[in-house]
């Protein structure tokens, strides 16, 4: 684009993901895995347990694990939003993407071309690339908001009228969808939406790690972004 593009970049590594972001990422990944597995078995339970009812509590444990992981995701999510404001600029990327920036949308288009094999080289970003930001924002952020809201609405049905879960969620979510069964169906469908996101997310992370010009997976562990070449970083003004 500009003459800067040709400038050699000397910086070898940048600290991108702060400790809270990395911690949140892996705790969240684990909790969502637990939620998807237990959620699936809530919808389609395992074969019946032999013996007396009093000696078994399988469905109870599965549901307990689901609700516990649900709380972990919900509390972690609130914390993550707080961190979007308190953390570094990269902490904001998937929660408050610059949706009104033309430059940013151009970046999105460039990444789309990269994935369609229409361009030979991806651009180099310190944080997430714009397409990743967009997908994480639209699919992941709002998908999780949806799961938390509908999840707590279903949870409130068990804790009953008068509980905060019921008053804050069930009381308006259930009439909004029509009835409880519809909330179950949507909660279930959006699980698959998130699973599709996870498939793509993992694939892209692995692929970028191999094919792009920056580290991806190790960055989410160490926090440091390392670069494989010395060319210009997108958005870098120096």
């Amino acid at each position: 684009m500009t003459s800067k593009a040709a400038r050699v970049h000397a910086e070898p590594a940048v600290y991108v993901y702060e400790v809270p972001v990395r911690l949140w990422h892996w705790v969240n990944a684990l909790a969502i895995t637990v939620l998807a597995v237990t959620g699936y078995f809530i919808g389609s339970p395992l074969p019946s347990m032999p013996g007396e009812a009093i000696d078994n509590f399988l469905m109870g444990y599965i549901r307990f694990a689901h609700f516990a992981a649900g709380y972990v995701v919900a509390i972690g999510f609130l914390f993550r939003i707080y961190w979007a404001f308190m953390g570094n600029e990269h902490a904001r990327q998937i929660i408050l993407p610059p949706l009104f920036s033309v430059e940013w949308w151009k970046g999105v288009m460039h990444e789309v071309r990269w994935y369609l094999f229409l361009t030979k080289e991806p651009k180099k970003y310190i944080g997430h690339n714009p397409l990743a930001q967009l997908v994480m924002y639209v699919v992941f952020f709002w998908g999780i908001v949806f799961m938390i809201v509908t999840g707590f609405a279903l949870y409130g049905e068990g804790t009953g009228m008068g509980s905060w879960q019921y008053e804050m969620f069930s009381a308006w979510v259930i009439p909004l969808f029509g009835q409880s069964q519809d909330v179950h169906t949507w909660h279930h469908l959006i699980m698959w939406y998130i699973i599709v996101f996870v498939i793509i997310h993992v694939y892209v992370a692995v692929r970028e790690d191999i094919m792009s010009r920056q580290s991806i997976i190790s960055s989410m562990i160490s926090g440091w972004r390392t670069f494989k070449d010395t060319r210009r970083i997108e958005g870098d003004e120096f």
Binding site: H188, L189, V196, I200, Y203, R207, M211
Partner: peptide
Amino acid sequence: ADAMGGGVAAVVGGAVAAHAAVSAVKR
């Protein structure tokens, strides 16, 4: 929900595998 979501996930999984194959060839 499972038949539909599972179907979509399978299609996406297939697409990912194909994309990975093309990526490897290009690389």
